[in-house]
Design a protein around this nucleic acid. Structure first.
Lengths: 235, 235
DNA sequence: TTTATTAATATGTAGCTACATAATATTGTC
DNA sequence: GACAATATTATGTAGCTACATATTAATAAA
């Protein structure tokens, strides 16, 4: 914003953003058409287009063919959330990563799981419950369901030493996913596992992944108390 | 992914993504250089570049000048989180929106707030505590601090009928922001305000906004029980 | 006045050339 | 062999032309 970007299109983007920030163009206002604005700012329409698309992506402006470009009146706070692989996250914080398998079963999942994965008809899945450790202390409790129909090979994988996620990311790349973030009061068992008090609030992150509409996995990650997620505006 | 995109660059993006999904290129593998891959897929380098940049943005591949393009081995789950203005969110769910001011004071904020806003030296701020209602029932408890140095005019605004956010979005566009998501066990007072049991887990979303490094506001939104955030992979 | 058709227009995309930039490879020197 | 200088190379950007597409605006038909 205040600094001068190296490349031209970023420079143009910041200048247009600046015109919005300083009130030259206010929420609801219409911006000049690309060709005119480009001439005004001394760049090609291509370059301005690149800049405008970036601003549209971050939710600052809205562009419509023929309708032109307007400053959004309902600026959604569009943040980018990066959820890394747990092992890397733990190691990045300078801890030694550990993994401990709690239970492994094969059964038909409850309706809540099959519905979340948009499964047409429920089928047998592999359920894996495990702990992720940081310097020996519980970092995260994982409750995972893996589709034995989409990923039959997982049944033969040894999950006592490595997380199912580690195997999945290199063998079943996902095409798309959903994430659900909620708060949860942990019960006696969970409290004991993640080192919390009974009833203490913890952040729960659920993730559903698919490969071409075929369900891969549903993971429910119960974080230890005090854990929080950070997100920020895209540059 | 499985569907055919209308535009060429989206089509190319999906085809390259497909080569990763079907295992032609696996995590850690190097993709052909743009020129060759473009020739192989029958498009211009410009078009392939557009497609590759999209894949790089979503965290699927990694591109480095001279170094080439590689499939990421540590695929971060990069999700887009849209946090709308509360009033619009409530109305979108078909409820009647209501707003109720609880308290309004002017004071120097605690260190936690000024630190979160990266304030060099603490200065007086306007504190506003208010309730957002959906069909008369509490939807969200807001605890906001607004910088009287960056936004002195806010002192004259009537905040008994409209949310401070409504005024801010049209008068002080933000240049960047941070978001913090955590779980919280609500105390007696909070429980009573948002209609929860004491100690019940609720999702807390904190947001810090700036305009050119000058702090605008710090909001702590305590959601009612059961509230959750949804995010998903970028198309 | 209403409705269907047609024209006008702003943004979106495809491909081109040319050059910039950041890394990596190579070469030369000590 | 170690290190600095130089060449090479893959991606990144700027600008161009031409055309596509979605919508609005204008016009004609009912």
């Amino acid at each position: 914003m205040s600094f001068v970007a190296r490349t031209s299109w970023q420079n143009v983007r910041d200048r247009v953003h600046g015109l919005i920030l300083d009130g030259t163009y206010r929420p609801g206002d219409k911006l000049p058409r690309d060709e005119d604005l480009a001439a005004e700012l001394g760049c090609a329409r291509t370059t301005l287009h690149r800049a405008m698309r970036a601003l549209a992506d971050t939710g600052i402006i809205e562009r419509r063919r023929k309708g032109g470009t307007t400053v959004r009146t309902d600026p959604v706070t569009r943040a980018t959330l990066d959820i890394p692989v747990t092992r890397l996250e733990v190691e990045a914080r300078g801890f030694t990563y550990g993994y401990h398998l709690l239970e492994r079963t094969e059964t038909v999942p409850p309706a809540l799981i099959s519905a979340a994965l948009k499964m047409l008809k429920p089928h047998r899945m592999l359920r894996v419950q495990a702990l992720h450790l940081a310097d020996g202390r519980t970092y995260l409790l994982e409750d995972r369901w893996v589709s034995l129909q989409t990923v039959p090979e997982i049944a033969q994988v040894d999950l006592s030493t490595q997380s199912a996620n580690e195997w999945l990311v290199r063998n079943r790349p996902v095409s798309h996913y959903d994430i659900r973030i909620s708060a949860h009061s942990c019960d006696v068992k969970e409290a004991q596992l993640i080192g919390a008090q009974e009833g203490q609030a913890v952040l729960v992150v659920e993730r559903m992944t698919w490969t071409n509409d075929a369900p891969i996995t549903h993971v429910r990650a119960t974080n230890s108390p005090g854990f929080h997620l950070m997100a920020s505006s895209r540059s």
